[in-house]
Amino acid sequence: MTEKAIPLWEVFIRSRNGLAHRHVGSVHAADATMALQAARDVYTRRGEGLSVWVVPSSAITASDPAEKGMMFEPTGTKIYRHPTFYDVPEEVGHM
């Protein structure tokens, strides 16, 4: 294979206003314009979206799953960050 690889893009779609863009998959395209067109053709054939973002996959910095303990476990013990940690007498009503 002597051909140059075509860059990979991640595709995000806002399905309707009021919702965030959500990752739906990826496409290969030479540039951003073509990536947008490819994303439209591949991921919105049935009115799935009102807005599309494409991001070069190489631009994404991801956390390492092997370090997820270090990243996320500390919050596991911080139960005082949740409302249910606090006692409020019933007669006070909903708070």
């Binding site: 294979m1 051909e3 690889a5 990979l8 998959g25 990826s26 054939r45």
Partner: peptide, 22 residues
């Protein structure tokens, strides 16, 4: 056209395992 799309979703899924589209 859908079948073309399905092929592309699946190639993208395979690529997440570290193999290139090419």
């Amino acid at each position: 056209q859908d079948e073309g799309g399905h092929g592309l979703y699946l190639y993208a899924a395979a690529e997440t395992l570290g193999v290139s589209r090419e």
